[in-house]
Structure formats: structure tokens, C-alpha cells
Amino acid sequence: MIANQFALVRREIWEHRSIYIVPMVVAIIMSVTMLAVVIGASAFNKEIEAAIFGASNLVGDAERRFALTGFFAATSWIFLVALAILTVFYSLDALYGERKDKSILFWRSLPVTDAETIISKLLTAVLLLPLVTVAAIIATHFANLIIFSIWVMVKGGNAAHLIWGSLALFDNWLAALIVTLASAVWMSPFVGWFLFVSAFTKRMPLLMAFMPLILIPLIEFIAFRSHYFADAVGGRGDMMPLFRGTDLEGFFDEERLRVNEEVISLLGHLDVGQFLVSPSLWAGLVVCGLFTTAAIYIRRYRDES
């Protein structure tokens, strides 16, 4: 079972090379952009560069920590957006592609159950994709740290103090890991739904996946003037119960710039316990489980001929 899962997940990486290519491309684009900004600022706009560099030298340690941490956290969010898009396309193709190219007949000729196959695709979407994303986030952070350090050193600054010393790296990375994994689990009902559509639809999986999300709330509103479905689906877009506090504005509060914290901790904003006991999380997992089970039954019972 476990050995099969390893082989099956490896198979997913072979088939869907976008699993690592997309995060790699995003990482490269972001690092190159950062390099270009630094070089551009140095070469063409001495005033701006002087202002940035002056600021990084002059403002207090806490402020610099906050700015760098904020910058790195923002970098991570961009990866989360890429992860979301990648997950949609991956899970919609996961069970559709094999039927389209008929290779399902080959896969099903091997001693692997439909449940094992579909669980491997679910694990790929909810676990592997986020882990690859976190690796790309860390690689990008490293690249940016090196670019900043070289820039600071060229200007005669102390990179060890100004850059590396101003950032709680492990705090930042552990927070990225937790937030990325939690987001994937939080959004897992959608992954389940996409896998179900992917197993079910005969054509246009993308359209088939998103049309009901638009039509059902519309019909519900016209028929009952209610919006339970929209609330339930849209509710996933609200802040996860992982975060302390209520909104992003509070998270990046102007006031906080003035707070003289020794270490700006991202982990400090996360409450894993609160997330794990949240009924919404478990309700979502149940929905994911139901859709996944339905997908298994479709793959098992539907005759493709």
C-alpha cells in the first residue's frame, strides 16, 4: 500500500511535469526580477537607490526586520496564488487525461486498486504540490537574500547584520510551510470536487467544474432568495482559522511599524491548534472525502466502452 503510493505519486510527477516546472519558473522569474530591480536601481536611478539603501541603513532594527519579513511573506503569497492555479489544472486533468488517451485501460491492467490510484492523486494535490511550493519559496528567499547581500556589500554595508541578521529565517520558512499546507488542506473540498469532475466529465473539465459554482448560487437566489451555497463556497475564501486576529489589515497594521519588537515572528500570527479544532476544517475534509469516494466509484464502476 505505502510502496504503491510512492510509485503512484512518482508516476504523477512524471506525467505532470508542471508540478515542479511551474514553481521553478515562478522562482526564477521572481529572482531575476529582483536582480533586475537592484541592478536597475543602481545603474539608472541613483536617487532611488540611495533612498532605499539609506533607509535600510538608517531606520531601526525592528522596522528593517518588519520590512524584510513583510517582503518575504509577500513573496510567499505569490507562490500560493501559483499553487492555487496549478492545483486546479492538476486535479482537473488527474482522472480526465487517462480516459482521454485511453491509458486508463493500461493502468487498470495492473494490480493497483482504483482507490489507491485516486488517493495518490489526492495526496499529490494536497501534499506534494504544497511541499514543492514551499521548496520553491525557500529557494527564492535564498536567491533574494544573496542578491540583497551582494548589493549591500557592494555599497560597503554589513550584509550579515543588515540582511541575514534582520530576518528570522526559520520562523519565516516554518510559517510558509504551515500556511501552504494548511491552505491546501483548507481548500481540499475543492480538490475533491475537481477530482470528481475529472473522473466524471466527458469533455471540458474546466467548464464543468466552474459552471455549477456559478449556476447553483444563481438558481438558489432566484428560487429561494437565499445564498447558503454561495456562503458555504465563498466562505472558503475568507481568512483561514489558522490566523490570529481577524483580517489582513490587522496583520500588516501601520501601528505595528512603530512597535519595537525584537523579532517579527510570522509564526506568532499562526494558531495551529485553533485551525485543527475548527469545525470548518473538518467539514471541508468530509466534503473532500465524499467527492473523492464518488470519484473512486466512478472510476471503478463506469464502463468506458
Binding site: E15, F106, L110, P111
Partner: peptide, 21 residues
């Protein structure tokens, strides 16, 4: 025509080896 078109010959052998006792 049922062998997956994207797979490499070596990968196919690796996969069958890992799942078929």
C-alpha cells in the same frame, strides 16, 4: 494504443516493477 503516450520506456519499466509483484 493504451500505453500512456507521455511516459518514457524506462519509466514504464520502473513503474510496472514497483507495483507488480
Amino acid at each position: 494504443a493504451v500505453l500512456p503516450r507521455w511516459i518514457r520506456v524506462g519509466q514504464l519499466l520502473d513503474f510496472v516493477e514497483s507495483v507488480h509483484p
